Computed example of a mutant assay.
Amino acid sequence: MLEGGFADPVLQSGAAFRAVMAALANPGTVQNLVTPAPISDSMSTELVSVLLTLSDHDSPIWLDDVLRADTAVLEFVAFHAGAPLVSDPQKAVFAIAGEATRLPALDQFNLGTQEYPDRSTTIVLAVPALHGGAALTLRGPGIKDTLHISPLGLPEDFRAQWAANRALFPRGIDLLLVADGQVMGLPRSTRIVEGS
């Protein structure tokens, strides 16, 4: 068996799933992830945790170029998830990126349709830290009044990209940021407001 899976798949994937769902239900909050043993220097354990938790053989995955070039990552995905890999971001249910510079613009992914907005891509992005970057103020469902976040390592034009994504609602991508054994969710319903 390939190394790197959860030691207790049922309990740990359940705990990781609850963390991801809590992150999306409570945008901008930080949730603790269960992280497995590392599989490669190119893929953080947080990315591995979310991949193991959400993907299956019916969930096409897009990997950034560095991850796609790593044989250990490809073998791990094939063995543990059985998920098909796609090179076209439009065909991905999940997209996994080790850093923002390896990520295409958000609108290059599957944005869903008016009839089936839930068929859009969920992007999982590893960042250096969930704090310490430029301050952003969030509003929207799951947020009481406003919430201030400061993830480090977002794309330089993230604010503009997110505004365009939010304008597509109910279409649009959902974003999970991971770092330091934690996950933060930004669902498409979340707005970044001025003054942040």
Rank of each mutant, 00 (worst) to 15 (best):
M21N: 11
T121P: 05
V73R: 00
T113C: 12
T45W: 03
P9G: 11
G195F: 05
A81K: 01
P187R: 00
L47V: 05
L103K: 00
G133W: 15
R139S: 14
D70V: 05
N110E: 13
I173V: 15
L63T: 03
F17D: 06
A37C: 07
M184I: 11
F79L: 10
Q161S: 09
S42H: 11
I149H: 00
T71P: 00
G82C: 12
A7R: 04
D145G: 04
R188I: 03
G142A: 11
G28D: 04
Q12I: 11
L111I: 11
F169D: 13
L147M: 12
T146Y: 05
N110V: 06
L147V: 06
A19P: 04
F109S: 12
T190E: 07
G133C: 12
L111T: 10
R119Q: 13
R166V: 10
L186H: 07
D157G: 11
A129C: 15
D88L: 14
D56L: 02
P155V: 06
V20W: 02
N110L: 10
Y116T: 05
D88Q: 15
S150K: 04
V193F: 13
E194W: 06
L52N: 02
F109W: 02
T137G: 12
V48S: 06
P117I: 06
S42M: 10
V183P: 00
G112I: 14
A164L: 08
V48M: 00
M43F: 07
K144I: 14
A7L: 10
A81H: 03
G181L: 02
E75F: 03
D70C: 05
E156C: 09
P128D: 15
L103I: 10
Y116A: 15
M43N: 04
R68C: 03
L74K: 02
R188C: 12
A72L: 13
L136D: 15
G4F: 07
L85W: 10
I173S: 10
N26G: 07
V48Y: 00
Q161N: 12
R159T: 12
F94H: 06
L51F: 09
I192A: 01
L111A: 11
D58C: 02
P151I: 07
V86I: 14
V86K: 02
P84M: 08
P117W: 14
L67D: 04
A105D: 11
S13F: 12
L177C: 12
L103W: 03
S87Q: 11
A16R: 05
G4S: 03
P187G: 13
L85R: 01
L168F: 07
T121L: 00
V77W: 00
S150V: 04
D56V: 07
S189V: 02
F76E: 05
P36K: 01
D180M: 03
H148D: 14
A134P: 15
D118W: 09
A78W: 09
E194T: 14
S44R: 01
S87V: 10
S49R: 02
G28V: 07
